[in-house]
Each structure stands twice: as structure tokens, then as C-alpha cells.
Write a protein that binds this DNA or RNA. Sequence first.
DNA 1: GGCCGGCTTCATGCAATCTTCACCCCAGCC
DNA 2: GGCTGGGGTGAAGATTGCATGAAGCCGGCC
Lengths: 226, 226
Amino acid sequence: MRLLVVEDDPSVAQFLKKGLQEERYTVDLAGDGDVGFRLASHGSYDAIILDVMLPKMDGFTLCRTLRANALQTPVLLLTVKDSTEDAVLGLDSGADDYLTKPFAFAELLARVRALLRRGTAQPAACLTVADLYLDLIAHRVWRGEQEIFLTLKEYAILEYLLRNHDRVLTRTAIIEHVWNYQYDSMTNIVDVHIRALRAKIDRPGAASLIHTVRGIGYVIQTPRNR
Amino acid sequence: MRLLVVEDDPSVAQFLKKGLQEERYTVDLAGDGDVGFRLASHGSYDAIILDVMLPKMDGFTLCRTLRANALQTPVLLLTVKDSTEDAVLGLDSGADDYLTKPFAFAELLARVRALLRRGTAQPAACLTVADLYLDLIAHRVWRGEQEIFLTLKEYAILEYLLRNHDRVLTRTAIIEHVWNYQYDSMTNIVDVHIRALRAKIDRPGAASLIHTVRGIGYVIQTPRNR
DNA sequence: GGCCGGCTTCATGCAATCTTCACCCCAGCC
DNA sequence: GGCTGGGGTGAAGATTGCATGAAGCCGGCC
């Protein structure tokens, strides 16, 4: 899940980024409204967390501008004062929810989860293909009865592949989802991680769960009966 | 105390969540019966508040299914009509109490408190994993026959980890729960206390009860086979 | 005041993990 | 069958994150 945090105070921004990353979100930061708009309008975020007080363009305006550009991404506004005025202004500008500073980080998380839930019908608690089982809450993975221990990147890639099973994912798509920002196109880092993943989840001798689609990318297919 | 609210109407759900949070409960929401079941079956809630009218799986069925899966968590049903029929159906399906809409929030609170009392009254007020035993009332900890003396912070962290066993807790979550910090992402205070805890509760040579999840946080795991 | 226990910060070293790179292998094309 | 380019492979190097020991800080107590 990709989030954009638009926040000018570097220490708050870092705090949010770190905390969200610990929850396995992919987080981009923008320090002012202009940058925020540029990043947000690319439209590849699952939710946007927006400070109201911002240089260049305040949060309300930014939010309104995004909506004017037909951007649907859920927006969570961070307001400073607990005034109904701000809240009304916020929701009027097209935000989906708001939170007044200071807030408990756990509450931010809950609201972000709520926003993401709203966007995508329902959050599955586990993903599974064949006898591979991925527990999204405990962040643990099994193949049959055997637990498999994955690194952060391996887990992220596997989750992405499973969420999009039967759909070929290009290296670029994988990089954009699992890493921040774009990488140079001449890296085989995805290949290397896929190899590590295969080594861990596949059974010796059997065909790999992860199929290579030559010239395109990778895919995990669910068994089909035709 | 963790509560699960299964309710499809977003405004009612938010109302319940907010109100319960103000009473210092930790609240998760589920929007339909399926999601509710998945979350509930993880078993980490102290009580479940269940609307009868739900998409996917109605409250009675959900409740019965949970009980069929040997889940003991107390359940409070929210029924719409004040018919004895519904009440009987509810209690038959394994619910512990019911409440007819509309209701006063204070009454909901009272019933939730009653359920929690009932829940914690019968089983001993202790948390335990392997041969580690934590007495919540006496505030004392044993490893096997050996009593272990913990400082305040150590005890708080251990209790938090035990209450959320099998769930990876991020440093941010731990800090927020045990301290009242915010915006301090550059401290390793959790690490240091975890180290002290391990030194006290672990046996020399044996693997630690507290597992490190690299890049995320810490977790205490109960033996489990998926 | 001085000592003590507990809490917090800091600096360091080690190990897991990530990334890059060079080379190998094989499918697809001629 | 040979060529080509994309993908697989193994290992080296860079980076990051965690564990650790020590030191500083603070409040309570003698």
C-alpha cells in the first residue's frame, strides 16, 4: 500500500514516515503543497495524509485542487485546532476524514486503515494460493505445515504478487510498489529478490509457484480447471 | 482492552468506535460478517459487538460460527426489533448479551463492562506463554518455579507483548502504549528495555521468548501450526 | 550530600539484508 | 546450428538495523 504524506515539519514528517513504514506501508514525503500536488496527481497512491498548514499551498486548497482534477484517492487531513470550522472546511474541500493534532499514532493508523478499507472493498486477513498461506496480520508465511521466514522485501513482493494473482506484474510495477520512487531501469534487483523468494517458497524438483513471463514480468497463477 | 465492532453502517460504526475509544478501549471495525469472522477468529479481542443485520453473514450465523470454532470471546448482539424472538435466537446462537437499537450509549458501555468482567472473572487473571507466567493482579512474574523481578517499564512491555502475542508490535506501538511519547523516531529505548527483559526472562543458551522481527519490531509467539 | 536503582542516551561492532555486478544459460529467431 | 537478448545465478560490497556495554541523568532514600 502506497501512502503520500504532505507535511512541512521535517521531524513530524520523519516520525510519520517511520511509523507508517513499520506498518509496512510504502511512504513518500512531500514538504510543501506544490510538491504534494505534483506527486499526488500522479495518482498512484492508495491514500494521502495531508497537513493543513503548508508552505506554497495549504491543505484545504490542495485537497480541493486534487478533487477538481478528478482524483479519487482518499485524503486524511491533519488539522491543528479542534474547531468545527476547520473540520467543516476540511470535509467540504473533499477530504474523507480529519484528525486534530496532537493525536495518538495508533489513531492515525486506525483512520488510515479505515480509509484504505473504504477504497478497497475489504481487507483480507490472509492470502493463499495452492498450499502457500500468507497471514497479513501476523506477517507470517507457510508452505503447507512448514513456516517460511521472509525478509521485508521478499514479503512485500510476495504479498504484491498474491494480491494480483493471475495478473502479470512487470518489473517496473513491482519496483514502484515495493520501493519508493523509481529506480534506474537497468537493475535486476527484482530478479534477484524473486530468485531468493523462489528458493524459499518452492519445493525442490517441483515447478515454481512464481512464473516468469518472458519479456514482461512475473505472475503467480491460481490453479485452473478447464 | 481490545474490542471488535462488526457493523455495516459506517456512521453507526464510527459513532461506536469513537465513543468506545474515548473510554480507552482499543477498537477495530469490520464492515461485514466475513471480515468480522476473519478478525474475530484471530482471537485477540476481549469482547465482540455484533450487529445482527450484516452483509455477507448475519450476526446470528457469525456468532454461531465463532462458537463452533471454539471461540470463547464474549459477544454482545445489537438487534433491531425488540422481539423476544430475536433475543432467544441471539442467545441460542451463543451470544452473551443483547441490546436493541436504539439504545443509550451509556447502556452499551455498561453491558460491555459487564461482559468484560464476566470474561476476566472466571479464567485466572494471568498471561502465560511457555513456562512464563504473569500475574496481572499481583503484578508478579515467574519463569517456571523461579520468580522474576521486573521494573515498571519491563513489566509494562512484557504485559503488552503477552496481551498481543502472535502479533508483531512495532517500536512506535510499544512506545505509544508504554510511554506517552510522540514524534521521537530516533530513540532506541525500546531496544534497550527489550534487552533488559530478555536478560531476565530468558534462560542462558536457549532461544529468546521475545523474537525480533527485523525492520518491524518485536513479538512473542505461542506455538502454532498455522 | 552521597548513594542507589531505574530510566535514557550514546557509540560501537556485528550480522542480516539489500544492491550491484559479472558471468552463465537458455528460449526464440534466423 | 549459431546468434542474441532476457533472465538466472553466485558472490562481493554497501547499507541498514539491532544488540550491546557504558555512561549520564534523575528522583528517592539514608
